[in-house]
Design a protein around this nucleic acid. Structure first.
Lengths: 329, 329
DNA sequence: CTGAAAGCGCTTACAG
DNA sequence: CTGAAAGCGCTTACAG
């Protein structure tokens, strides 16, 4: 910039004005500066600009795993919202590791992100309170924070699970198995709560032999489903609390050739759900809407919104495709 | 940092040394500085540090679309490699838009990324030559650059397509349809080249009625497949050049109840390929390896590797699951 | 409309 | 081992 100013024969500040598109510069000077900048191949240094302005036009996005479809859809929605604002997104995957969450949040904050969008891995976000005081805005996604006041955008997890189980009950099922993710995950807990609630509301007693938690992979879910379907008192329907678990259940049912006799409803929609036979009935979340809304809330805060933090619930919706409409024998 | 120095009664530079873990500071001073830092809730400002040091420990990753599985897997692999180095990743989606590629590359470079990993949308990357001279390292992923010298990591696209078509020929097919993505995309072109090559090597003449390009969505692919299978001289096998196209073809075949009579091989593997009936035979790419290797090459360059730029080819592999082994009638 | 001075929060280069 | 001075490349606050 100094060189440009020298070559154009103007002050540093004038170059700064031209670069930033300030309109109160005489056309003559603008042209001289432009010419000099082109000649020297000048590129502004945003790091310097950021330091002086005290802002970076960057936000951080902490995902469960950038590679999974839910995270990827969230990421893209956040990117779209940020793009409109000229804001860039720094991302990281937490793999359900709370230590990594703290570490990455800190790393991003030290680099000056103005806001943080977090799908939390831990259950204690109080480490962020200091940062909030220092002006970093935080919005939680998918899981509401527990020990800190901040906006959150979550799916209607319990409601969605209730819808799924009521759907199966209505078809006539009484023996409905539950295949679920780690109970340490808030959303898995909420979905299990919904499962229990729907059964108890219908006067169906819980059967512990038809409940399996801590299913973290397709393989684990597949095994659990195989074991459950193999039992003497096997369920006539299964509610799977999550994408990978659903896929595991599908594989298990296919390998037993029972995909047309055992009903299945899965939480989370996925691309091929309607192409499988039978089509898989799912409770669809809306990660795109969740990401969009979370980014909007964050930018609202950055623009000075001081209203009380709130948890926004994005509705889920049941998509009947066949597997959830199979009747009990 | 100034306040910490004052409170600890030491020089600024000593605080800097402690914060950066320089070992040549007396334990007594280290402790005083630590205590003062804790008391004041001191957090280092990496923007300032970056400005002074002339580096940012940040790289940029330009993807086709953060939401698609290939991009997401690439992203995660790059993140893992970067994490080991304490490097953060700034991402953006290009949606096959060359103007957006230039725009985003520039935005990232202005923010001081030290290197750029690009899945290019355009075919002219010469706009990066100036940046390379200025020290920004660039590695291309998935598509080799045309007008610029830089490392690249690509899939064995033509070879993979040849493998797919030869597989179908070996089973006995002669009428093999081609469903492909936009010919403006280098990889789609290479896969079509492979298709043509395999047929011509086998002495099978091309039949334009069984070739469809520019299929950018599941729906478009589905329609094209329907039309092709409906024709009087329908193919007995289909080679789909890409994920979404394969899914479109699957849907079309299912809706005509011909999934067990028409063979299908798809380029790109996907999660449920082995769960569908029949299982879908695919040419699997290895985006995780591609991302890992690209990041490794980039970091090698940043560490001073000055060897000639090279295009690295990551092999694909055929996974036979049933759909590709269906015999012609 | 234009520009010289000061400063953002660090680190480099140097001296002690 | 420790620290005062200078400077990274910008923008803010001010004066003209």
């Amino acid at each position: 910039m100094r060189d440009v100013a020298a070559l154009a024969g103007v002050g540093l500040k004038t170059v700064s004005r031209v670069v930033n598109g300030v309109t109160t510069v005489s056309p003559d000077l603008v042209q001289r500066v432009r010419r000099a900048a082109d000649k020297l191949g000048y590129r502004p240094n945003l790091t310097a600009s950021n330091l002086r302005r005290g802002r970076t036009d960057t936000i951080g996005l902490l995902l469960e795993d950038a590679a999974n479809p839910f995270s990827a859809a969230l990421h893209r929605a956040v990117e779209n919202a940020s793009r409109e604002r000229g804001v860039l997104v720094l991302t990281g995957s937490l793999d359900e590791n709370p230590a990594r969450e703290r570490e990455l949040a800190r790393a991003l904050i030290d680099r000056g992100v103005e806001g943080l969008l977090i799908v939390p891995a831990g259950r204690d976000e109080s480490y962020l309170i200091t940062e909030q005081r220092a002006g970093v805005r935080v919005v939680f996604i998918d899981r509401a924070p527990t020990l800190i006041a901040a906006d959150a955008v979550v799916s209607d997890n319990e409601r969605g699970a209730i819808t799924a189980v009521e759907h199966l009950l209505r078809i006539g099922h009484r023996r409905i198995g539950y295949l679920g993710d780690s109970q340490a995950i808030l959303t898995a807990q909420a979905r299990f709560d919904g499962y229990r609630r729907a059964l108890s509301d219908a006067g169906v007693p819980l059967d512990e032999t038809m409940i399996r938690h801590e299913l973290r992979t397709i393989e684990a879910a597949q095994e659990a489903a195989l074991a459950m379907l193999d039992a003497v008192s096997a369920p006539t329907a299964i509610f799977a609390s999550q994408n990978l678990v659903t896929i595991g259940a599908i594989r298990a049912m296919a390998s037993l050739a029972r995909q047309d006799s055992v009903a299945l409803v899965g939480f989370d929609d996925f691309v091929l759900a309607d192409t499988l036979r039978p089509g898989i009935t799912t409770i669809a979340q809306d990660p795109t809407e969740m990401g969009r809304l979370a980014a909007k809330l964050l930018f609202g805060r950055l623009d000075g919104d001081r209203s009380d933090p709130k948890t926004h619930v994005v509705p889920t919706r049941l998509i009947a495709r066949g597997s959830g409409e199979i009747r009990p024998p």
